[in-house]
């Protein structure tokens, strides 16, 4: 048998991974944009859960990280309307996937020939299910991406 190490393999970057999850969750939308900035600079803002994150994500006022174990994160989020969410998930450079009983948050960034492609998905979760309440989701995500872009280009 031929050494399989020599066979060409495909690479699935983090934005493509986010497309897969968004496609698999009924009600989910995904918004993408390419920014003329290096990926590490972009992720320094996107992945800053306790700082920048609350300034561009919809309805998010404050996030506090309760624990980190490698890429695994548990965080407490508070919305502008006072609601709290205990988010659990994975955060690493280029990738963030968090869920609570009522929320799903997905973010990705991957190098692009014109800079960095960023993508957002998520929204209000149908409690405990892999499903997102579809109303207004696309508009919220678009607003979040615009806020993020404005911040990054500043």
């Amino acid at each position: 048998m031929t050494d399989e190490q020599q066979w060409p393999t495909a690479d699935l970057d983090d934005v493509r991974r986010l497309r897969v999850l968004a496609a698999a969750i009924p009600g989910a939308r995904i918004t993408e944009r390419v920014l003329p900035l290096p990926a590490d600079e972009v992720w320094a803002v996107m992945g800053d859960l306790e700082g920048e994150f609350g300034r561009f994500q919809p309805d998010m006022r404050h996030v506090r990280v309760l624990s980190r174990d490698g890429e695994r994160v548990v965080a407490l989020a508070r919305s502008r309307y006072g609601m709290r969410a205990r988010l659990e998930g994975v955060v690493r450079p280029g990738w963030c996937w968090l869920q609570s009983r009522f929320l799903i948050i997905g973010m990705a960034a991957a190098p692009d020939p014109d800079g960095t492609r960023i993508a957002l998905t998520g929204g209000l979760r149908v409690p405990g299910r892999a499903m997102i309440v579809p109303f207004g989701t696309a508009r919220e995500l678009d607003h979040a991406l615009t806020r993020l872009e404005t911040r990054l280009r500043a």
Binding site: E4, W7, P8, T9, A10, D11, L12, R17, V20, L21, A24, I25, E88, G89, V90, W97, Q99, I104, R125, G128, R129, A130, M131
Partner: peptide, 22 residues
């Protein structure tokens, strides 16, 4: 309905699928 398990499953299956599709 656990979406965190979905993302873990995606991470688990991606190398396998990429090895076939590549």
């Amino acid at each position: 309905g656990d979406t965190l398990a979905m993302q873990d499953l995606l991470a688990h299956l991606t190398p396998y699928v990429a090895r076939i599709c590549g």
